[in-house]
Nucleic acid binder design. Structure first.
Lengths: 159, 159
DNA sequence: GCTCCTGGTTTAATATTGCAACTACAAAAT
DNA sequence: ATTTTGTAGTTGCAATATTAAACCAGGAGC
């Protein structure tokens, strides 16, 4: 099989994340789901993708625990797709993508939406990365990768 | 044409970002580039992807202004791919992906690297989103999307 | 019953991806 | 000077993914 290589078991957490949400439509579906869209038809109209693809994407998102199928809600005996906590956890990724476009896109005037704080209705700040002691970290130069200490195993004296 | 739909001109900045970096390999190449990898062969060995794919990915990353080709560096008359500022701006996206995996992955023990502050060598905090007045915002429920105010046009009295 | 709407599945054409083999050329070894 | 190795690709073909469009089933409306 020439199958697309799976990154599910990669050591790099970024690769692992991409294995799950690293495709166009999936992330856009999640974006829509976080905006409150719930129904097959809503996603399809909003995204304009082929229905069979929407079908498969919804299925894998459910399989991966990002969306959940809920039996109904507005009466009709259809079902809805609602984000799980794991799905809601994708929010920062979407914010990071958004802010990157806002900062670097060639045609920022074409961007028509703005992420605002619900209370003040004013734009949010850029995502911030802090060290454990609270110092704010700038770009990637302020960080390094380290080997993760092996997980503790119970009931073993040494290892 | 059944061509893959382009999101380059989408109104949503997330879609626009995905149009550029919304594929597996591109993001992994950028990750490697930010880790200091520079050469075709380094990327290929590290990622294990087919060379023709690496070729096309590198080309589009250069076209899109994320990587830059630099003439040499270590003597040899070959060239290198180095991240531009726009490329370095992708760092927060990678951090967000990483943290999402760390928090929600089913097998977190398989993740072997840890992002640490360069000075203290201690793990970084989670990315934080703040309102313009500094209040920390939690999940997606604390924010809304608004229409972006139209860009100012010079020399027009009203609009 | 007949028809429309929702939420899909199936099909066939087209596009993209992946692998392997091949090329071109510079560097290093003999 | 000639062979060998390493780098950075290209080419061809098979496998897979995406798309649009046609089809289908169940429920609601008439």
């Amino acid at each position: 099989m020439v199958k697309r290589t799976s990154l599910a078991r990669a050591e790099c957490p970024i690769a692992r994340a991409l294995d799950v949400i690293g495709d166009w439509w999936s992330l856009l579906i999640i974006r829509d789901a976080l905006l409150g869209r719930r129904r097959f038809g809503e996603f399809q109209k909003s995204l304009g993708l082929a229905k069979n693809i929407l079908t498969t994407r919804l299925r894998t998102l459910v399989d991966r625990g990002i969306l959940q199928m809920a039996p109904a809600s507005d009466g009709s005996a259809y079902q809805e797709y609602v984000p799980t906590p794991k799905g809601r956890g994708i929010f920062p990724i979407l914010v990071a993508l958004r802010q990157w476009s806002e900062e670097f896109d060639e045609h920022p005037q074409e961007i028509t939406t703005l992420l605002v704080d619900r209370d003040s209705r004013r734009p949010v700040r850029k995502l911030e990365l802090h060290a454990s002691d609270g110092r704010m970290l700038g770009g990637f130069g302020d960080t390094t990768l380290m080997a993760r200490p092996a997980a503790k195993r119970r009931r073993r004296v040494s290892n």
